[in-house]
Design a binder for these strands. Sequence first.
DNA 1: TTTTTTTGTGCAATCGTTGCCGGGAACGAT
DNA 2: ATCGTTCCCGGCAACGATTGCACAAAAAAA
Lengths: 349, 349
Amino acid sequence: MDPVTIKDIARALNLSTSTVSRALRDSYEISPETKRLVMEYAERLNYRPNPIALSLKGSSSKALAVIVPQIANNFFSQAINGIEAIAYNRGYHVIIFQTHESYEREMANVQQAVARRVDGLLLSLSSETSDVTHLHALHAQGVPLVLFDRVAPDLPVTQVVADNFGGAYAATSHLLQTGRRRIAHLTIPPYLSITQERLAGYRAALEQYGVAFDENLVRYGTFGPDEADELVEQLLAQEPRPDAFFTASDRLALGCLTALRKRGIRIPEDISLIGFTNLPAAEMLNPPLSTVTQPAQEIGQLAAERLIELIERKQKASPPATVKLPTTLVIRESSAPPVRAEADFRIGL
Amino acid sequence: MDPVTIKDIARALNLSTSTVSRALRDSYEISPETKRLVMEYAERLNYRPNPIALSLKGSSSKALAVIVPQIANNFFSQAINGIEAIAYNRGYHVIIFQTHESYEREMANVQQAVARRVDGLLLSLSSETSDVTHLHALHAQGVPLVLFDRVAPDLPVTQVVADNFGGAYAATSHLLQTGRRRIAHLTIPPYLSITQERLAGYRAALEQYGVAFDENLVRYGTFGPDEADELVEQLLAQEPRPDAFFTASDRLALGCLTALRKRGIRIPEDISLIGFTNLPAAEMLNPPLSTVTQPAQEIGQLAAERLIELIERKQKASPPATVKLPTTLVIRESSAPPVRAEADFRIGL
DNA sequence: TTTTTTTGTGCAATCGTTGCCGGGAACGAT
DNA sequence: ATCGTTCCCGGCAACGATTGCACAAAAAAA
C-alpha cells in the first residue's frame, strides 16, 4: 500500500525509469504507444510524483512559507486565507510558521523555511524585529520574498501594506471634527512599520487641526494579555483627561472598551473610541465600535500573487515596489459627538 | 551562499561524506579528534542538515499536517495555536491545509500531506464529508492520524473533542430554567459529529423538561455568508414564535444578533440567545452574549501531544481513544429571564 | 549494399544523507 | 612471524525523480 513510484511502473511495464519519466512528461522522444501504456498504467495506480524527490532534485518544491507573528489574530488569519486561496489555484502549498512576536523565532523560522526549500517566503515582521539583516541575506541569496503588513521599508523587496497613515489620519480627523481635542493613542510596539505609520497619521491630523501633540497621550502595548486595562488607567490619570481613544489593534480596542466600561465611563459621551480592526463583531458591540478596517484578505492575495510572479518569472517580474491598499473608516456609535458638542462648539471650545 | 552540505565539509576536511555524517551524529566509530574537527567546521559554516534529503531517505520529516476547514475561524485558529505550541517544542513543523468545507479538497489535502511525507496528520473533517474511507485507508497504511473537534466516531483512531453534548445540554437547560419553552436551534451542517452531539444535547434537555421536540425549530446553515438572516426569518414565521435561539457557532450567533436587532426584536426580553462560540468579544456585545465556550487551544495541544506520542512510540503509544474536554456555559445578559418570567411561572406557563 | 539519419530507449549522474560492507593500520596474543 | 581484534575511516548503494548522453534498431538516403 506504499506510494507508487516511477520504478514500480518501470518494472511492471518492463521499461526503464527514464522512459517512464519521459513518457509521463509527454516527451517527444517517446513513442505514442509507449506513452499511452505508461500513462494508462500510471493513471490506474494513481501515481503521484514524490514532491520530496522533486525538491531534492533542485526544481521547485511548490511550497510557500508564510511567517506571521500569530495565527490566532483576525487580521493574519484573514490574510492567510487570501494567501492560501491564490496559492492553491496556482498549485502551491502553504507552510505556516508563527514567530510569536519573537525575533529569535523569526530567524529560526526563516532558516527552516529555506532548509525546506520553499519556493518563496511571505513574511510579516515580529514586533521585536528591528534588525533585518537576516532578510537582506535572504534576498541576496535570491530567495523570492514578499513582505506584507508589518514591513521593512528599507528592504529592496516587494511589500504589500494597508494605508495605515491614511486610516489613522481619517480616524483622528473624525475625532477632531466631532469636537474631541485630547485624543489618546493606544498602540502596539514601536519598531513596527504599521505602528509608526499610524502614529504619523495621528500626528498629521492633530497638526492639521492645530492641536499640539502630547507624547503622554501615546502608549505602547506589547500584545500581552489584559494590558489595555493598565494603559487605560495611566491615560485616565492624565490632566486634563483624554476625551477620545484611538487604538491601533482590535485587541486593544476591546480591552479599552472593557476597561472604560468597568470604570463607568460612558462611550461616546465621556470618551470617544475608534479601533483599527477587522473584528466581524465590531458592529454588534456595545456601543457599536467605529473602526478603521483593512482589506486583510486582499493584502494576502496580492502578496501571494506578487510572490508567485517573482518565483515564476524571476527576472521578468515587476520590480520591487510597495503596494498600498486603502483602509476604510467605518463610523459607528462609539465615536459619536458628545451631546453637548454643539453647545461646546458655540462657546468656542 | 548556497546552503552548506555534508559534501562541502568532507571536501574541505579531506574526509568522506560518510565520516562527516557519522562525526556529526557523534558516532562511536569516529575518533574524538576527527569529530572535533568536523563539528567545529560545521559549526563555523553553520551547517544544517537538509530536511528534504532526510525525508527522502525515509526517516522522519519532522513535519505535521494540520487539515482544517477554515483558518479564519476563531476556533480553528486557536486550536492551531495550541498545536503549533506543542509541535514547536517537540521539534516538529506544521503544514496547514484548508478544505474550505469541501470533501474533494479534504481528500486532495490528505493526499498531498502523505506525498510530502509528513510524520502525522491532525484533521478536522469538512462539513461535506460523510464518507471516511480515505481515512480508513490512511490508517490502514499506518500513517499516524488524530482527529479533533469534527471527528468520525467509527474510525479506530485517537480523537480529541469538546463535550458538545454537555455544552448543548447545559445551554438548553439554562434556557428552559429561565422560562423559555419554544427554543429554536440554529446549527451547522448535519453530517458533522459536533452538529449531531449538540443536537442530541439540545434534545436531551428538552426531554428532561418534558418539552416536545419540534423539528421545525431546527435549522441547518451551510457556512454561507449572511445565511443567518434567512434562517431567522423562517424561524420567526413559526407559530407560536420561538422565545429562544440556541446557535451552534459564533458566526450564527452574530448573524442572529444582527437579524433580530434588525427586526426590532429585543434580546433577551422577546427572545433569549445563547451561542456556541469562542468569540473574545462575546462579553462586549450588545447585549453581552451567553455562550458555551470550548477549550480550543487545549484541544489542539492535546491532539498534537497524542499525535506525537503516536509517531514516536508507534506501537507502545496509548491505544486509540476519544478524549473529551469539558465545555463551559457562560451566562450573560442575552439569556436573562424575561422580566415577566416570575409572573409567568406563577400562573404555570 | 553501405552509409546516414531518425526514432526510441537505457545508463548513469545528480540532489544530500545514511546504512552497510569492507579494508588498512596498529596492537596484542600465540 | 602469523593471526585475530580493535579502531577509524572510505566506498558504494539507496531514497525517487530528472536529464544529458550514448547506443541500438529501424528507416531513409546514397
